[in-house]
Amino acid sequence: MVENRPLSTLIAHAILWMGIAIVVFPVYLTFVASTHEPAEIVNGTMGFLPGGLPLQNYVDALFTGTKQIKSTPVLQMMGNSLVMALVIAIGKIAISIISAYAVVFFRFPFRMFFFWTIFVTLMLPVEVRIYPTYKIVSDLGMLNTYAGLTIPLIASATATLLFRQFFLTIPDELVEAAKIDGAGPMKFFRDVVLPLSRTNMAALFVILFIYGWNQYLWPLLVTTDASMDTIVYGIRRMIVTSDAQTDWHIVMATTMLAMLPPVFVVFAMQKLFVKGLVETEK
């Protein structure tokens, strides 16, 4: 910066740390609750420091779930979430990269029509077609299946646009050099386009994994069988309006577990995460 004023720097740091405190506090409190006895939580004597059960609530949550309202063990829910997040992320990347490849590297009848068909889906989020989509999934017999949880969410205009944008930056000469080197379209895709797209795919994967893991409305619609609950939706089923019946200590441990994988991904792949976030919004 232009000036160098120690006081203003100090204030800036203070404001930033306050911001971080605001962001961290709810999670910290949840963590605290996840280490306390249920009674301490319910009668309000929990306080602001971790309790005496560092692991017990987690073990109970993972292998048993809530008891008053019988829930699926959280480990199973996490398994469901993992399958959903992975299939959605990988599926979206796979079908988007091949369709973008087709649109960019070939000329074929109705090319632009197809492109716009994909593009317009940006304007059709699940929320505006809740019941008809549910009905189709139900008619196809995909309720309470992994296929039903994932396939309808697998089309992606955003990912297709991103790959298209990237493919347009591949120099023509590289394609020509490959042609002279004897590479056909599939060989070029495998040997050149895929390796060059690695960073983009990884960045997309981070964003789409989070997207898939955090799905809420869709599992709510297509899964009725508790054994198919994803963790994000499962938490909601553990909380009942009559407080006495909610096993808050388990709910809190489950909440921590629900945040863990996507937050871990963000921390582990910061650069890719930011890249993915910025590029998918273009």
């Binding site: 962001v23 809420y216 939706y233 909601r236 996507p262 991904v265």
Partner: peptide, 10 residues
């Protein structure tokens, strides 16, 4: 930046 990764429901 990490709260982005937290599901709205969570």
């Amino acid at each position: 930046m990490w709260p982005y990764a937290v599901a709205p429901a969570v």
